[in-house]
Amino acid sequence: MIFASTALLALAMSTDAFAAAVGKGTALQKPRWSEALRTGTIFGVMEAITPLVGWALGLAAADYVRTWDHWIAFTLLLVLGGRMIWAAARKPEKAEVEKPSRHGFWLLAVPGFATSIDAIAVGVGLAFLSVNILPVAAAIGFTTFAMVAVGVMVGRVLGSVVGRWTEGLGGVLLIGIGAAILYEHLGAA
């Protein structure tokens, strides 16, 4: 696989993680770069591992992965996004003070996993093409790391502008990502 193809694939695989990271950044009280880098690491590692999993599944599980990946991603993002919207609607006006300074591991791992499920199918597809998966997975992971770290900081700016509804906005973004994944897969069928 040539460098340009790898770079474009890595960029495409990390765009949904970027949008989720913006939502995560809006839900925090002025996130610092250390939290942005931590979030980027969690998302990036997951995004790098999932094409390897897809590669390992290979031809035997290709049909199963393609059949269910979009439903799994949609459900996870719908539940997490709905939870964020519900929490934003229940918060009082002074919710800015109540925002956490960092997310727990699982609040990052779930959307990190959900936005990386499509990379399993990419890994399976690359197995068909006999592509060396290691540099591709590393490129996807590093690009996701960088885009998510920036996304969290973009969310910081949006959080200051939008106020208490930022967590709800993040929830809407996650549900939108899930719906886009579902639409893309069902529209292709």
Rank of each mutant, 00 (worst) to 15 (best):
T115Y: 10
F142I: 15
G155E: 01
L126C: 03
L158S: 05
I120L: 15
G125L: 08
A138S: 13
F128E: 15
G163K: 15
T115H: 08
V161S: 13
P135I: 07
V136C: 06
I117L: 13
A121R: 09
A146M: 13
L129Q: 15
T166V: 07
L129P: 13
G123P: 10
A114Y: 14
L173V: 06
G159E: 04
G171I: 00
L173C: 02
I120G: 12
V150D: 12
V122L: 00
A139T: 04
T144Q: 07
A146Y: 02
D118R: 12
G170W: 02
A139C: 03
A119H: 11
I117S: 01
G168F: 04
F145T: 06
N132W: 05
S160E: 15
G163A: 15
T166P: 09
F145G: 06
V136M: 08
T166M: 14
G168A: 04
F142P: 09
L174R: 04
V124H: 10
G141N: 11
V131H: 05
G125D: 04
G141A: 10
I133H: 03
P135V: 04
G163P: 11
G163S: 14
F145I: 07
G171N: 00
T143A: 02
V122C: 00
I117H: 00
F142N: 02
V136W: 09
V122E: 00
D118S: 14
S130F: 12
L173R: 03
A146Q: 02
M153F: 06
F145E: 08
A121Q: 05
A137V: 05
S160C: 13
R156F: 05
G163N: 14
V161T: 13
G123W: 10
L126F: 03
M147A: 12
S130K: 12
T144K: 05
A139N: 06
L126Y: 03
G123D: 07
T144D: 02
G125K: 04
G170S: 07
V124L: 12
V152Y: 07
V124D: 09
A139I: 05
G159V: 09
L174T: 05
A138I: 14
A119I: 12
G171C: 01
V157E: 14
G155N: 03
V150P: 10
F142Q: 11
I175L: 15
A149C: 01
S160Y: 13
V148C: 01
L134C: 03
L169N: 13
L174D: 03
G163F: 12
G159R: 08
L169F: 10
L126G: 02
V150H: 11
R156A: 11
